[in-house]
Amino acid sequence: MFKKITIQADERGLLFDKGSYVRKLMPGTYRLSSWSQSTVVVLNIARPFVVDGKDLQLFLHDDDLVRELHIVRVQDHEYVLHYEDGQFRQLLKPGTYAFWNMFKKHTFLHTDTRQPELSAEVDRSVVPKLAAYVQPYEIASYESGFLFYDHVLQRELPPGKYYFWRGSVSVMVKTIDLRQQQMDLIGQEMMTEDKVTLRINFVCQYKIVNPLRALEMKSFDEQIRIQLQLLLREYVGTLKLDDLLKRKQDAASFVLSRLHEQEEAFGVQFLSAGVKDVVLPGDMKEILNTVLLAEKKAQANLITRREETASTRSLLNTAKLMDENETLFRLKELEFLEKICEKIGSISLTGGGDLLERLNSLVGEKRRASN
């Protein structure tokens, strides 16, 4: 009795005797006796060379078999990109692999993970298929990046997208924002020269011009904040409250000029600064409001007296003119009579004489009667 085994044109057979590999079988028909301990494993040459339960090294002593195989050895520090007929197939991790070299053309790209950045040889279109093995970093157009391998600075990265292998080397990218930034000091308690405690809201705009210097400083933002606080305290501490309120805008000029002296040390350019608010204690507010009210009342009284003086002077000038000019005097009398007549419903006059003289005499009689 025989066992019939047929191997197709796209297949190869591996003959085993008592579990040990003997040789490769080409396409054709084979008969094995039923009592024989020989077995045949049939493999499709369109697929990778893999025999379940057997190590690849078991077959590499067969030169005839090896001539039909493409053997790839991936080192511990490598990833290998496998392409079939120019198309990406898979990523090979450390180990030994074999592929049939008849039907398809196999090419392999070796990458060294000790140099984590993906080289230009790796087509970026296949990166999404490598998501489990690649870590991306993106640097915006307003940022500057710094590349670290195992916490050691390598170089500065311009804006763009970068990819690095996940491997034995730790990769980290730190970014620095180069846009104009604003720092607010809110409710900073300070004491003036005359021992008045108040709170100041201060603002400062700046931009980083030396990102490496900013990166080298620990707690960069906090150091700038502390410097602002110290300079502001220095200014406020030399002025009395009244002087500070009058010259609070000068605080910005003082602080900004002192900050310019430290631009190189911080690696920044300070653009502007200013006092937003000066918040006084409650009791001090009441005192200042009282002072302000008194000042406004004094100003109002001064204006009233000034207007009264001007009115009296105007009357005096008018009287002098009428005394010197009879016609002007008569016109002024007519003006007063017109105003009197506006308030009287009707006037009855009898007898002859000039109308104006009779009205004057009538007004004179009314005045004497009232007296």
Score class of each variant (00 low, 15 high):
Phe2Met: 10
Lys3Met: 11
Lys3Asp: 15
Ile5Ser: 03
Gln8Gly: 04
Glu11Tyr: 06
Gly13Val: 03
Ser20Lys: 15
Val22Lys: 13
Arg31Gly: 14
Val42Phe: 14
Ala46Leu: 15
Pro48Ile: 03
Val50Met: 15
Phe59Glu: 07
Asp62Gly: 09
Leu65Cys: 07
Arg67Leu: 12
Val74Ala: 03
Asp76Trp: 08
Leu81Ile: 08
His82Val: 05
Thr96Tyr: 13
Tyr97Asp: 00
Tyr97Ile: 02
Asn101Asp: 03
Met102Phe: 15
Thr113Ser: 14
Pro116Asp: 03
Ile139Arg: 01
Phe148Glu: 00
Tyr149Ile: 02
Asp150Ala: 05
Val152Cys: 12
Arg166Cys: 10
Asp177Ser: 01
Asp177Thr: 01
Gln181Asn: 12
Gln188Asp: 12
Glu193Gln: 11
Val196Phe: 02
Leu198Trp: 00
Leu198Pro: 00
Asn201Trp: 03
Ile226Val: 12
Tyr235Ser: 02
Leu245Asp: 00
His260Val: 01
His260Asn: 10
Glu261His: 08
Glu263Ala: 11
Phe270Gln: 06
Leu271Ile: 14
Glu286Pro: 00
Thr290His: 14
Leu293Tyr: 09
Ala294Lys: 09
Ala298Pro: 05
Ala298Arg: 10
Arg306His: 15
Arg306Gly: 14
Leu315Trp: 11
Asn317Met: 12
Ala319His: 04
Lys320Leu: 15
Leu328Glu: 15
Ser348Thr: 08
Leu349His: 09
Gly351Gln: 13
Asp354Val: 06
Ser361Gln: 14
Arg368Trp: 04
